[in-house]
């Protein structure tokens, strides 16, 4: 898997918000077709990292390259089109709450100018992939947390993106639903063959979905490797995090 070309390349990415340094010159490569999970504590900037990959945030310093294109070189309209190669699932689903599930999933297809019959077929397909058949007419407010996330996944994969980003897909769900969501992510990857980057602080689901794991701490990736390598990582901070201990170098 090391031979795979790099799809997302971050170099020296730094970002501060109101004087608070969130990313401190971060380097990261995401290879084509792999499933990378970025772990790290709450508030360490994992979501910020994800938003840099898709160009929702621009770095103060450093570069983000996707498929060899520097995001900073794209103008406002070009990046809007460029984003079609991404699918992003947000933390709480971020479904449009004035629209039904069906309309939510159809939204990207409509905006891309698909004809009506193809939209209907594709929406049905996407909802089937996330096991949400029968929820088409429901509004987001009528769905459970797990269903909202899956509807968000369905919307994210509608345009068959090459890159899928998941922002804390299992946070706040019960263990059974978590396992279901992890299963859906693994299935989606298998059926789409997309590169996926997932943000998580849940170690159980991380080990279920990751090809590689990277740990974000104080604005940098402090360790990265296969699940086995991460389990065997000598870094005390990594060990404390994956074992979920209260005392250790992270708490100091």
């Amino acid at each position: 898997m090391t031979a795979k070309p790099v799809q997302i390349r971050l170099r020296g990415v730094a970002k501060s918000f109101g004087g608070k340094r969130v990313l401190a010159g971060l380097d990261l490569d995401v290879h084509e077709g792999e499933s990378l999970v970025v772990i790290g504590g709450s508030g360490t900037g994992k979501s910020v990292l994800l938003k840099h990959m898709i160009g929702l945030l621009a770095p103060d310093a450093g570069t983000v390259e996707v498929d060899g294109v520097r995001l900073a070189d794209l103008d406002y309209r070009e990046i809007t089109i460029f984003r079609r190669r991404f699918g992003m699932a947000f933390q709480e689903g971020a479904l449009f709450d004035s629209m039904t599930v069906w309309e939510n999933v159809a939204f990207p297809l409509r905006r891309a100018g698909w004809p009506r019959e193809r939209i209907a077929a594709r929406v049905a397909e996407c909802l089937e992939l996330v096991h949400l058949e029968g929820a088409e007419k429901k509004l987001p407010a009528q769905l459970s947390g797990g269903m909202r996330r899956r509807a968000g996944f369905a919307r994210a994969i509608a345009l068959t993106p090459k890159i899928l980003l998941f922002d804390e897909p299992t946070t706040g769900l019960d263990p059974v639903i978590k396992a279901v969501i992890d299963g859906v992510i693994v299935d989606l990857r298998r059926s789409l063959g997309s590169t996926t980057v997932t943000i998580s602080h849940d170690m159980k689901s991380t080990f279920r979905i990751a090809d590689r794991i990277g740990m974000l701490h104080e604005g940098r990736i402090i360790a990265i490797g296969t699940p086995e390598e991460i389990r065997a990582c000598p870094d005390g901070r990594v060990q404390q995090f994956i074992e979920g201990r209260a005392d250790g170098p992270l708490s100091d």
Binding site: R83, M88, L95, D97, P108, R111, A156
Partner: peptide, 11 residues
Amino acid sequence: EQIDALEVLAT
């Protein structure tokens, strides 16, 4: 994050 979602959905 619905506004972010719009941007991600190329809108």
